[in-house]
């Protein structure tokens, strides 16, 4: 099953995340960690989550 977002949905997520980060202000890091935990729980797939954590460490 391909559960990736459609381009339009991805764009909305992109904008919403950017605006939420601005809104979080100095708490942007805390905000991101909350988001990561919530999304991890929503996927119900710990392997996929851990894999994303590894991938996102690259090219920082």
């Amino acid at each position: 099953m391909n559960s990736n977002l459609r381009p339009q949905e991805l764009e909305s997520v992109y904008d919403a995340l950017a605006e939420s980060l601005d809104q979080a202000g100095e708490q942007d890091r805390l905000y991101l960690v909350k988001v990561a935990l919530c999304l991890a729980n929503l996927t119900g797939d710990a392997d996929a989550v851990l894999n994303s954590f590894r991938e996102c460490l690259e090219d920082l």
Binding site: R29, L30, V33, K34, A36, L37, N41
Partner: peptide
């Protein structure tokens, strides 16, 4: 510390933590 603080913050609304 960040993860702990995020968990505390989430705990006010989300039971899963």
């Amino acid at each position: 510390r960040l993860l702990r603080d995020a968990t505390l913050s989430l705990s006010l609304q989300k039971d899963f933590v």
